[in-house]
Amino acid sequence: MMHLIKLELKKGKMGGYLWGSLITYAVILGFLLLIYLVEGPTQTEPIFQSNAEMLGLIDTLIRATFIIYASVLLAKLVIGEFQNKTMALLFAYPVSRKKLLAAKLSMVFVWTLANVIIANFLIGTIFLTVNANLGYVPDTISSELLINHGISVITNALAAAGMSLLPLTIGMRKKSVPSTIVTAVLLVMVVCSNNMGFSLGSIIAIPLSLAALGILLTLLSIRNIDRVDVA
């Protein structure tokens, strides 16, 4: 399995993935800083009431971005290989089809999970540091806040990683890249939308059950792969 993942990375060029992540972090950070620096100084209607709210927005934005990013990866690693017909090449190797697909999907899962956690850690730290100096958000950092936020980041990251597989089941039906990515965007719009502080994602059961659904449907779609014709 590790060997298969290594081969996938070789195929897609490892460096590309790392750069992709770094650039994404930079863009998210830039966007949030823009909000913070422009809206922060206005005292009448402060953009963030508390540190928890600030960190919450950071987390939401990161998850939304990486769920969509994951769908792009799925499109490339799975749907793209069907479209380029290289999947037929892979399926004619003496390697089980299930393992081949499992390697690809676990890459996407781990990649999303790791990125959501790392990005939260990096961007969160930067924000807390910046705020400690500028003080636009009038709040103190408590260890309780950090622990609570840490737990929620990790559960949400797991949920995001599971959900990130959902678009594949839709995209696989017609082996279509657009439908994979559009599904991810719709998913994000439902789960990560925020209406006056309320979000479907904040009821933790919803993202977690969507994650479970994502994993379940993916397993179901892999189950019969040995019987499928690959033209």
Binding site: N84, T86, A88, L89, A92, Y93
Partner: peptide, 19 residues
């Protein structure tokens, strides 16, 4: 349907080769 062993011993090129 799930047999993979013999594929080790086969080289192939079907239709226009893909890379």
């Amino acid at each position: 349907p799930g047999t993979i062993e013999p594929l080790k011993r086969i080289g192939h090129m079907i239709e226009a080769p893909v890379f």
